[in-house]
């Protein structure tokens, strides 16, 4: 299955606030790409543009699947889910007063997803066994780590090819961050999922990413072809590796 995401010249914002300026970025099938940036630099906005939650003002988001190109900038969030794009949002955004199982079932709302619901449920439970044990518990009563697992599992329920993960480390203890990142790496390795992950935690992100971008004030300032190139970059050293400001 050939897949690629090519974003070019993307501008987006909220009213007078410009959040993205001329963003260009690409992800090839099977890759795990990191989108790095500190608070308020536009990571979530970019993710939301891809998922169809925020309409870009300019530019294109082309998703190429088996030789057919779709411009996500013109499609609704519903259509984008049908194309196989799923997002694990920042802050998890579960439905707290629904059970674990009900949250998972909502992940399979789309007609196409309902056909694979049994397989996907099995996959979700196999990936995160604790969810199976707690399937009738209210999502809001689970621990932060379990909630993050549920958020990822819920995204898997729509049979995605491209998984967008927005800051999975937020609000988790270092150990859980590490476990969560490892799981995302496994999804990429074992299921062949293509992953674009926004993170602030540089060292964790590069454990599973093969390359990455740095976004500052809505602009891509570094596009590195490898993790080593990222580590060697001056901006990265200044922002993440404790170099002098």
């Amino acid at each position: 299955m050939a897949l690629s995401l090519v974003i070019s010249g993307l501008d987006a914002g909220y009213g007078a606030v410009k959040a993205l300026r001329g963003v260009s970025l690409n992800v090839r099938g099977g890759e795990t790409v990191a989108l790095l940036g500190t608070n308020g630099n536009g990571k979530s906005t970019l993710m939301k543009c891809i998922a169809g939650l925020v309409r870009p003002q300019q530019g294109s988001i082309s998703l190429d699947i088996d030789g057919t190109t779709h411009d996500l900038a013109r499609l609704s969030a519903e259509d984008i889910v049908d194309l196989g794009v799923a997002m694990v949002p920042e802050g998890r955004r579960l439905f707290p007063r629904l059970t674990v199982l009900e949250n998972l079932m909502l992940g399979a709302f789309r007609k196409a997803a309902r056909r694979n619901i049994d397989e996907n449920l099995k996959l979700a439970f196999a990936t995160f066994p604790v969810l199976k044990e707690r399937q009738s518990q209210l999502a809001g009563t689970m621990s932060g780590g379990q909630q993050q697992m549920l958020a990822i599992a819920r995204a898997l329920m729509s049979s995605p090819r491209l998984l967008l993960v927005d800051e999975p480390s937020v609000g988790l203890s270092p150990l859980l961050v590490s476990q969560t990142i490892t799981k995302i790496g496994e999804l990429n390795q074992k299921l062949g999922l293509t992953v674009l992950m926004a993170e602030q935690n540089f060292n964790q992100a590069i454990r599973i990413a093969s390359r990455g971008y740095i976004i500052v004030h809505g602009e891509i300032v570094v596009a590195a072809k490898s993790v080593d190139e990222l580590k060697g970059n001056d901006i990265v050293k200044r922002l993440y590796l404790g170099g002098a400001a």
């Binding site: 519903e78 984008i80 889910v81 997002m87 955004r93 007063r97 819920r154």
Partner: peptide, 19 residues
């Protein structure tokens, strides 16, 4: 289930491909 969810988080629901 979507009706109960819409009261809780509309944006998250959109991510599930639900309007």
């Amino acid at each position: 289930r979507a009706i109960r969810a819409v009261a809780q988080d509309q944006e998250a629901l959109r991510l599930m491909g639900v309007n």
